[in-house]
Amino acid sequence: MRVTAAVLLVLCLLAISHAWDCQPVVDIKNLMQIDAGLGQVVATDTSQVPYCLVGDEWIRLPGSLKHITVGPAGIWGINKADLIYKYVAGNWVQAAGSLKQVDAGGNQFIVGAYMKDSSFCLTSSATVGYKGPDSPLPWTGLPGSVKYYSCGPFGCWAVNKNDDIYIMSLNQDCQNKGWSHIDGKLSMIEVATDGSVFGVNSEGSVYTRDGITASKPEGTGWSNVPMCMIMKHGTYNLGHLWVIS
């Protein structure tokens, strides 16, 4: 028997009973990566076409991207050549540098992972003020080696090539005090605008971090989010969990 695998986007809502109510999103398919922040949702598909959710409609954005992110720092993306772009006035403007993954969820600063798993940060003043090639881009190198990076109001989270999990306090000027190791294993991780943390492990299971507060940004432990299929990527914002099979 021939088996065909489908790339499916699933939207899950946290009900009053604290259980998840999940349903397929039928008006878009073949997604590869998705990111949500500040009430906005962006995604790329397996053909590297970028999209933005406007109301209930997925709008195709110009260009070709393998990774896209949205947050307080705006909308940023990476193409297949690892070139960096910012979405400015309806068009993509190339930014100096090279990254394989970028995140705009921090307090108006952006962070990203380079192809050799080194990581970098761009200050809020440079990020928000970037309009084109004449704008300065003082990238700051960060410690450690990570493959996936995501920030929120209480700190930045990352995973390395061994799926080890770390958290770092990082401010608008890219100043930090280094990484702290967190228990567990995840292959990707995302931080929401409200500080919630979700991730997917190498087996396709989805987890959320419990007990995260401003005074305890590392939280208290992991809880599994039950899914009816194997997932590979996810993001969370405003009570909505978006996951891709």
Rank of each mutant, 00 (worst) to 15 (best):
S47G: 04
Q33A: 08
G221Q: 13
S205K: 15
A192Y: 12
G37Y: 08
T123L: 12
I84F: 08
E203L: 14
A89W: 09
G39Y: 01
Y166G: 00
E218A: 15
G37S: 10
K216E: 12
M229T: 06
N162F: 14
W92R: 06
L238V: 02
P153A: 07
G199S: 07
V88T: 11
M188P: 00
P72Y: 04
R209I: 03
D194F: 02
V93P: 03
V25R: 05
D164T: 11
D45P: 00
K185H: 09
I165S: 01
K147M: 14
T4I: 15
C22G: 05
L53N: 01
A81P: 05
N176E: 14
D210I: 05
D117H: 15
G132E: 12
H233E: 13
P217W: 00
E190I: 00
I68E: 04
W139T: 01
D56C: 03
S47T: 08
G63P: 08
V25L: 09
L238K: 12
M227L: 14
L238M: 14
V7K: 15
M229W: 08
G199H: 07
A104K: 01
D21N: 15
T220G: 06
V225N: 01
D45A: 04
T208M: 14
F198V: 06
N91I: 14
K100F: 10
A192I: 04
V243Y: 01
T193W: 07
A15T: 13
S223D: 15
A126K: 13
K66A: 11
G74W: 00
P72L: 10
W76I: 06
T193Q: 05
N201Q: 04
F120V: 09
S245Y: 00
K216W: 02
N162C: 11
V49I: 09
D82W: 08
P72Q: 15
D35N: 14
A89G: 11
D117V: 02
H181P: 07
P153Q: 07
D117N: 15
S64C: 08
Y236M: 05
I244N: 01
I244C: 02
G155I: 00
T235H: 06
G74M: 10
V200H: 10
A95K: 02
